[in-house]
Design a protein around this nucleic acid. Structure first.
Lengths: 337, 337
DNA sequence: TGCTTAATTGCAATCGTTTGCATTTTATTA
DNA sequence: TAATAAAATGCAAACGATTGCAATTAAGCA
């Protein structure tokens, strides 16, 4: 087994005594080639553990079989990179992409150049783009979509856009969570999250309407537009109590991490959960049930979301029609409420 | 701005009235080209937001500027994909790679073909491989290294190998954690983790020696070779107590997730922490300090680790000598001990 | 056997950049 | 001004696989 010079398709073909065209076809099981020849060449290839040069293949076929996944981080705080929920999505996307025969080029909005369409797609680095998160502004996404490249985003699916958006039913999630707290007796419920962000906006609308439907009014000052990090939540609750005492008895958090930060602040002041304050998180990350008390939270079917995203993306690659999709969303009741 | 047919370097050159060679050189700021010409072409390029075809460029230069990152998962349980620590490493690697001008192709040991060297490197999909985790067997890693491709791994840095391994000082970590618990008064300390795994083996050795140095003996049955998941830890502690009661007063866990699982089991049985049982985790993930009680744990400098990994990898790409590296490792004392 | 059709295989152009070397243009000096 | 050196640009050959079309071989049938 001499590995002197690197093995190319041409050399492999020569070894097999056929032309490169035959070798190429044989390797991809093209029925044009005689069954027997195919087998022989494939065996030879794996014996010399040959794999075709992806760069050459991509150049020729104009397809990369790679999808760029961009984590569209919201805050400057890099904290959010480590939000388990985002990473869960990445993991599921990786699986779904692989299942569809694609590989994943991982990037994030801090590092990627601003012109996603040309940097990733026109340059043949990837065949399409999956954006995780709408961010506070969708200009980069819109720009990429205008350039007509295959793209899908995880976000609020009811946002009007000329690209498919996959996401949970944020309005329903916010509504369910709030209604639940109200039913459990909470009367003064804070909303921890920034409604300036599309997904949060819908959850907030659900929060407002649940109050209305229960005949309660919402104090605008009860909405705390904080960053989506546990640190921000911790600071927020801390300040709130320090300034006005414990004037609330319920917390709707836009992520489990936010809920954790809030819980920490409450525990530090010996506030009982759920006795004094009831809490609902969002995302149902693995740690939610390990918390003490186990966190009531809104679950979104991420596995399905990943499949839908890949599906909608490939539809675009194949010039087929697409549409936004809402994934299953439900409340998981645990001990924090 | 007509985007009729896709823009190639040749067309851009034509627009600029120069040859493709000049255009190519101008775009990469080659001093061979007159300053003025360079500026003009670069301006034209960004005006038409042109970016060179990566496939063609890679084919020609034989460099991809991509690094494959493989999550070498241990268990069949996909749980481990979502271990926040692994994902933290991925995030840091992403940053470090970008800083060095590389992009990241993310894969994992379940999905990637078995022959990493030929699949990723010979095929020109990437210039090198970073493996996160040694797994229980290093055959795939060894095989890739034998194929002479640039490769580095996150793992136990004292493992003898013909490729650089970056990791914390696991022996010291295990020793510090155990010594700490002993000093706090624990006498019967369980080790939750599988010493069959290189990193765990060293931590376990530290656990054993700390006992010895304190004049204590270790009961072999106190070592619980469980999977690195909170679920496994929860089950393990549950069973242990169910069968023999609370016969231990200290827990050394090989990850924070394991610690969380254990904590949950203890709380369900109203065991006091740190009163009845003291606990130390490993990794210092963000949630460690949000736990109640805040988790004492072993911290490893992941940012530095990521930089070292990238550095050692690029050394290989540039034919320079490499070596394994130990990153800073220390105990963070919190309330669980 | 001779002829038509189907099954296999090979030829050669192409994908878009990069780069060693040749060529042209400009600057320098006698 | 002519000769020479330096600066700027262009030519054309790779890089390695894919694929429409032509060519060869095998099979089918009267």
């Amino acid at each position: 087994m001499k590995t002197d010079s690197k093995l190319t398709l041409a050399k492999l073909a020569e070894l097999a005594g056929v032309s490169t065209s035959t070798a190429s076809r044989a390797l991809k099981d093209n029925p044009l080639i005689k069954e027997e020849t195919r087998a022989r060449i494939q065996a030879l290839a794996s014996e010399h553990n040959f794999s075709v040069n992806a760069a050459a293949s991509r150049l020729r076929t104009q397809k990369t079989h790679v999808i760029a996944v961009i984590l569209n981080l919201i805050d400057h705080t890099e904290q959010s990179v480590s939000d388990p929920f985002l990473l869960k999505i990445v993991g599921e996307l990786n699986k779904a992409l692989n299942a569809a025969g694609y590989e994943m080029l991982l990037s994030n909005s801090f590092m990627a150049s601003d012109d996603w369409a040309s940097y990733f797609v026109s340059s043949q680095r990837a065949d399409g783009i999956i954006v995780v998160g709408q961010g506070k502004s969708t200009v980069k996404i819109d720009k990429a979509a205008e350039a007509q490249v295959p793209i899908v985003v995880w976000g609020e699916p009811h946002t009007p856009a000329n690209y498919p958006i996959i996401g949970g039913d944020n309005y329903a999630g916010g509504y369910m969570a709030t209604k639940h707290l109200i039913e459990r007796g909470s009367k003064h419920i804070l909303f921890l999250g920034d409604p300036g962000h599309a997904e949060m906006e819908q959850r907030h609308k659900g929060y407002v309407n649940a109050h209305r439907d229960a005949g309660l009014t919402v104090d605008p000052s009860f909405t705390k537009p904080i960053d989506i990090t546990s640190t921000a939540a911790h600071a927020c609750i801390n300040d709130a109590i320090k300034q006005h005492g414990l004037y609330f008895d319920g917390l709707i958090c836009v992520s489990d991490m936010v809920a954790f930060g809030a819980i920490k602040a409450l525990k530090e002041r010996y506030v009982g959960i759920p006795g004094d304050v009831k809490i609902v998180g969002y995302d149902d990350i693995m740690l939610a049930e390990l918390m003490h008390p186990a966190l009531t939270t809104v679950h979104q079917n991420v596995t399905m979301a990943a499949h839908l995203m890949v599906e909608q993306l490939l539809c675009q690659v194949n010039q087929q029609p697409v549409s936004s999709q809402v994934v299953e969303t439900y409340l998981v009741k645990r001990l924090s409420s």
